[in-house]
Amino acid sequence: MQLLTKFLPWKRSILISSIALILLIILSFYGLYTNKFYFFKYDNYILPIFSIIHFIFLYVLWFKIKEGEISDSPMRNIEYALYVVFIVYLFKLFDTLYIISTYTEFENHQIPATFFPMGSLITVLYLLLIGLTIVTFMYRKKYVGPYNVDILNEQIDSWE
């Protein structure tokens, strides 16, 4: 963990995660087989919608670390929602790998020259995002603290 924090501090990991997310949002509209952008397919809006949760978590994590605050229930809920988004990232990674692996099935068709470079870029970005998401979970636990249910319940005043 010390080696990781030396080469990838929390600010840099949040920044790289944001850049990777923005690039993947743009590339979610890109069709590998056709080398075109499709803005009218509903499937292409899954990642941009789910990435809102990721951006909110990154902002909350940045704020909590900067202000020295402890974890709270809203942050816990956002992180639990990010676990679901993490599964979507894994699905999109395997979907991209599947598309790249089906190249041989379409040898008789005209495949664009950008197929492998863009497919490789998207794959690397998903791997980077998945790794950085795990790293941000570790930074949340290190700098903000664990989700202690007893402390969270003590902060609730039921008479207000």
Rank of each mutant, 00 (worst) to 15 (best):
V149N: 08
T5A: 12
Y126S: 01
K6Y: 13
L58G: 01
Y139K: 03
K36N: 13
M75I: 05
Y103Q: 07
I22R: 09
R76N: 09
S28P: 03
F7I: 10
F37N: 08
I46T: 13
P48C: 06
L27G: 00
F115A: 03
W10N: 07
A81Q: 06
Y143T: 02
N44Y: 05
S51M: 09
I130E: 02
E79D: 12
L8V: 07
I26F: 14
Y103C: 02
L127A: 11
E105I: 06
Y147A: 11
I22Y: 09
F137C: 05
L121T: 05
M118L: 14
F91H: 07
Y83V: 12
I122R: 09
E67L: 10
T96R: 07
Y98Q: 09
I26L: 14
W159A: 14
L128N: 00
Y42F: 13
I56M: 05
N108T: 11
L90P: 01
F94K: 04
K141I: 06
S73P: 06
D43R: 07
L23Y: 05
E107A: 10
L24P: 00
I100P: 00
I46E: 02
G31Q: 10
Q155L: 10
F63R: 15
G68K: 01
R140E: 14
I22M: 14
T5W: 01
Y126H: 09
K6S: 12
T104Y: 15
K142I: 14
N108D: 13
T96S: 10
I70C: 00
Y98F: 15
L127G: 08
F94C: 09
I52F: 12
A81C: 12
L97Y: 02
W62E: 07
L32R: 00
K64M: 08
T123F: 14
F115W: 07
D43M: 13
L90M: 15
F7S: 05
I19W: 04
L93P: 00
R140T: 11
L121E: 04
I78C: 03
I78L: 10
K66D: 07
Y80I: 13
I25V: 15
G31W: 04
L93Y: 11
I111S: 02
H109E: 15
F91E: 09
L127H: 08
V149C: 03
K64G: 01
K41F: 11
N108G: 08
I151H: 06
F91V: 13
L58M: 13
F57S: 10
G68C: 07
Y30A: 08
F40V: 10
K92W: 02
L47V: 10
H109P: 00
I26P: 02
I122G: 03
F106V: 05
M1I: 06
K41N: 12
T104M: 13
Y89F: 15
K66T: 12
S158Q: 12
V135W: 10
I46N: 06
K66S: 11
N153Y: 12
M138D: 05
L127K: 07
A20K: 03
S120F: 12
I122H: 01
S71E: 02
R76H: 08
S101D: 14
A81E: 05
Y80A: 09
I87W: 10
I56R: 04
L4C: 06
Y83F: 14
S73R: 15
K11I: 11
T34P: 01
K66Y: 11
E160Y: 09
K11C: 02
I134R: 03
F57K: 06
S13W: 00
S17D: 04
S51P: 03
I122E: 00
L3W: 12
L125I: 04
L132S: 04
Y30T: 08
F55T: 04
